[in-house]
């Protein structure tokens, strides 16, 4: 555990909690892609199946349980409790175009051809693109609530901090995981355009809106 890894995890946790609180307090999931949230629930479920097979630390177990619990709570709020506020017409990204290729890639490129390892690999690949329905929705409506942009910033920052963590681990522990690194770079790059808008607009007190 190093400082980048810890702040990355906390940034991830902050993102998840910001989104849950935003929906809960406003009693609305307007502007939130339910599809992205379903993909994140799938990501956590397929990655953390090792909760059942191996114990690493109290920290590791509790974070995994919190991430999974929050992911399902978010999906529940969007599709059940506040379903009436869900903006399904604008959430029109075709997720099968992500899930199917990612599933194929996980079967072809992995560390070990075993059930849990392929699911872990699938979750890493899927996470790298799971935000696309949300970004697509924002590009379609041309705007995002400020609280939603804070969520996206924390979520993007988390993987960027993990990249620094992997550089650290490469130098100080001679450890690297090529699958996680390549997927993590892809994931971070997808946020770059958003990071630019966040810094130039939201941090200066303006609402994030895209030119028509």
């Amino acid at each position: 555990m190093n400082v980048f890894r810890l702040t990355g995890d906390l940034s991830h946790l902050a993102a998840i909690i910001i989104l849950l609180l935003k929906i809960w307090k406003s009693r609305s999931c307007a502007g939130i892609s339910g599809k992205s949230q379903i993909l994140f629930a799938i990501v956590f479920t397929t990655r953390y199946l090792d909760l059942l097979t191996s114990f690493i630390s109290i920290y590791n177990t509790s974070m995994k349980v919190i991430y999974i619990g929050c992911a399902y709570a978010t999906v529940y709020l969007i599709y059940m409790k506040f379903r009436a506020t869900y903006d399904g017409n604008h959430d029109s990204f075709r997720v099968e175009f992500l899930v199917v290729p990612v599933g194929g890639l996980a079967v072809l490129v992995n560390h070990d051809f075993s059930f849990l390892e392929i699911l872990w690999t699938f979750s890493i690949y899927l996470e790298s693109v799971a935000i696309l329905p949300q970004l697509f929705m924002i590009s379609k409506t041309g705007e995002a609530e400020t609280i939603t942009t804070h969520y996206l910033f924390c979520l993007g920052l988390y993987r960027a901090l993990y990249l620094l963590n992997w550089i650290w681990r490469f130098y100080f522990e001679s450890f690297f995981d090529m699958i996680a690194i390549v997927a993590g770079v892809v994931q971070t790059v997808l946020y770059c355009d958003f990071f630019y808008l966040y810094i130039t607009k939201v941090l200066k007190g303006k609402k994030l809106s895209l030119p028509a």
């Binding site: 890894r5 995890d9 991830h12 090792d50 191996s54 690493i56 630390s57 590791n60 974070m63 995994k64 991430y67 560390h111 070990d112 390892e117 872990w120 993990y162 963590n165 450890f175 995981d177 996680a180």
Partner: peptide, 10 residues
């Protein structure tokens, strides 16, 4: 093992 190592991360 290397495989066990990456499982430490979230």
């Amino acid at each position: 093992s290397e495989e066990a190592k990456h499982k430490d991360e979230l």
